[in-house]
Design a protein around this nucleic acid. Structure first.
Lengths: 228, 228
DNA sequence: GGAATAACCTACCGGCGAGTAAGATATCAA
DNA sequence: TTGATATCTTACTCGCCGGTAGGTTATTCC
């Protein structure tokens, strides 16, 4: 029995009449599907479930998507696009690598707090066909490589202690991915508190010797305008 | 088509004749199942798949397990038992909290490098029935609480900087869980190198001010007998 | 050797879920 | 208004999977 969160009602209403609005309705399907996939997993959410949630029938869905997999791939695309855009911004910065990493952590957390960001992490791309899996995994790998490059840049400019960038990138991403698994937007934990702890702990784990942590904290405080 | 790794052959051979060995065979089913579940997920691995891998037929499996879920629950039990034992050892130590956390990180990584440890993290307990899910989630929650207590102990004895223990525990566990998702025992990355980086980065993120990182590194080096 | 029985197999059931065929109905552009 | 078309529905197919019924074969213990 699909829970009907209040946030889903607007999408349901879009389908109340037959007014033509293909893009809007396609979008509504995506937003509804991603929430259901996050709550009950892709495999355990049937096309019928999604359709019912929107007050339509299953075959109607096939007017907007060729098959179930296309929905999932589209969700991944929207999610990875968000991450790519964030990375574009960070790479354009002229700042020490450690500060860029701090920005990555807070930016990634912000994205992962949203449905499509969380979907990239939580949904199992093993459900995809070989072709779809190849596309999605390629996008994920690219993100990982860009994070790795940020860390390597920090080691070059001396703001990050020498370490194995590959492992460090995995650790950073993994810590935030973990968060995506337990974080619920409607839950009790404040996103800002989580972000602050994450930035502090993760950057001090990277920073060069004596100034451990302070650069990351400064970067976070600057970006989020926390009292001097 | 299930890949047939060399490690699975011994279990297959156990079923070559009809010699009576219920415990051994039950164990063989578990070891085969956990590997297949890790490779292709619980849902996408059918009872037929598992049976075929062992060169028997599906109904034969039902001599050793009442149903598919019982296999999964048993796998979780074996995995969480390993973690519980490790925590028992750490809690018995008379050392600063930060060192205990360092031991937790390296111990957890060691467990997660094994099949049953990895299964606790990677397999989706959402596949379980309500009853089974309650048991498994209870065990996971208990582990989280014990880690949280370690961190709180470290804050009391001054080895760990004041922070939100709940968030810190999530971050620590999350980083290692992330590792469980990409780590493959047969892969190229050396477990010791991973452990070293993880302990260093995660403990320096927790440590009190000036000595950031050194306590964790010392703890790791002592335990693993790395040159003075 | 010969019951007793564990171990295993063939053949099946019921249900579910993705996807489709074919037709009905509302919308829109002219 | 009206034809063209997008939208949506009812009713279905097909394949897979968990689980079982009921019988067969090998092992074990006396």
């Amino acid at each position: 029995m699909p829970r009907q969160s209040a946030a889903l009602q607007p999408h349901r209403r879009l389908f109340a009449d037959r007014r033509r609005n293909p893009d809007g309705k396609r979008d509504a399907v995506l937003h509804t599907a991603v929430r259901m996939f996050l709550e009950r997993s892709y495999a355990r959410t049937s096309m019928n479930d999604v359709a019912t949630q929107l007050s339509i029938t299953k075959p109607a869905l096939y007017h907007y998507f060729r098959n179930k997999e296309e929905i999932l791939v589209e969700i991944y695309r929207l999610g990875t696009d968000l991450i790519d855009e964030m990375l574009d911004g960070i790479e354009a910065e002229q700042r020490p690598g450690l500060d860029k990493v701090a920005d990555f952590v807070s930016g990634y957390i912000r994205i992962v707090a949203g449905d499509f960001g969380r979907a990239v992490i939580r949904l199992d791309d093993g459900e995809l066909s070989k072709a779809g899996r190849k596309v999605v995994r390629g996008r994920k790998r690219e993100i990982d490589h860009r994070l790795r490059a940020l860390i390597e840049g920090g080691m070059k400019d001396g703001s990050i202690a020498l370490c194995d960038a590959k492992i460090a990138a995995f650790l950073l991403a993994g810590a935030i991915h973990g968060m995506a698994s337990w974080y619920e937007p409607s839950g009790p934990m404040k996103l800002e508190a989580i972000t602050q702890e994450y930035v502090r702990m993760l950057t001090s784990g990277l920073a060069t010797g004596d100034m451990a942590g302070s650069a990351g904290v400064r970067a976070f405080e600057a970006e989020n305008r926390i009292h001097g």
